[in-house]
């Protein structure tokens, strides 16, 4: 049975944007700023973060997941300022995160792993079994829930990763390259899931597949060399490109129009 509507569910939000960054800089290694002066405001919906390899997408997602601290600038998640040495426990309970390299314990079954993650995310003990079952069903793994992780295919492992990210019903969901390793049918199903989640959650999906963005995202964030290049709807991105730009689809032409301008010739790849 679905839980009754609680006071927390209908309380007004005390913030305008789920994610708000101003002048955000995040350092990687000693010197390099992988995110270099980013201004970004993201609300409810599915936001696709697009950009070439090495643009700083993963670093940005890690900073949003609060596992990297900003070097400069401010970052506010759900109205709470992130930074300093705080642990951000209350904030992290409302974040779901799927890292690019999703590591898991091979000997665990799907259910055990998602349960373990739910425990780590401080889901109330009595709610864990129900929350785990819902998450596993949502990614279509209910029939494989009691199989060990090592027996799963790459696409299924990815789906377990998505299940653990949504097990705590997050308000901010961060997915780093979630479609890698999914076959076309699974990608379609995944896009549907994204649209479902985006109705009441701020979903940030980093990807390098332009077609994922076209199909599932309400908003595109184009990102290069640590800076914001473009933010708008997929249609606006498509409109930026003309027939003279490289690409097979309007979105790809828009992408190359914005990224491959003459002052950005950092190599042909």
């Amino acid at each position: 049975m679905m839980p009754a509507v609680s006071a927390a569910d209908i309380a007004p939000t005390p913030y305008a944007w789920e994610i708000r960054a101003t002048g955000l800089k995040v350092r990687v290694g000693r010197k390099r700023m992988a995110v270099d002066g980013l201004d970004l405001s993201l609300g409810t919906g599915v936001h696709g973060v697009l950009g070439p390899n090495g643009a700083g997408k993963t670093t940005l997602i890690r900073a949003l997941a609060t596992v990297l601290r900003p070097a400069e600038g401010t970052l506010e998640l759900l109205g709470e300022s992130v930074g300093g040495m705080g642990e951000h426990r209350a904030l992290r309970r409302r974040i779901g995160y799927l890292p690019q390299e999703f590591g898991y314990y091979k000997r665990f079954t799907v259910r055990e792993f998602v349960e373990y993650m739910a425990w780590l995310k401080e889901v109330p003990k009595a709610d864990i079994p129900g929350a785990v079952q819902r998450a596993v069903e949502r990614v279509g793994l209910a029939d494989r829930a009691d199989e060990r992780m090592k027996a799963l295919s790459g696409g299924m492992v990815r789906r377990v990763g998505i299940a653990q990210a949504i097990v705590n019903d997050p308000a901010v969901l961060l997915l780093d390259e979630p479609t890698a390793g999914l076959d076309p049918a699974q990608r379609l199903r995944f896009r549907e899931l994204l649209q479902e989640l985006g109705a009441d959650t701020c979903v940030v999906v980093s990807t390098h597949l332009v077609e994922d963005v076209a199909a599932a995202c309400t908003d595109v964030v184009l990102f290069a060399e640590g800076r914001l290049v473009f933010q708008g709807t997929p249609d606006e991105l498509a409109a930026a490109g003309g027939p003279e730009h490289v690409g097979d689809s309007p979105l790809e032409r828009g992408y190359s129009a914005l990224l491959l301008t003459p002052d950005r010739t950092g190599g042909s790849w």
Binding site: A65, V67, E87, R89, R92, Y97, P99, G103, L120, E122
Partner: peptide
């Protein structure tokens, strides 16, 4: 040694408690 280290670092229970 811990394949899930990045996930573990991102959860609310991470930190001194864990």
């Amino acid at each position: 040694l811990d394949p899930a280290y990045e996930l573990t670092a991102s959860v609310p229970r991470a930190g001194l408690h864990l």
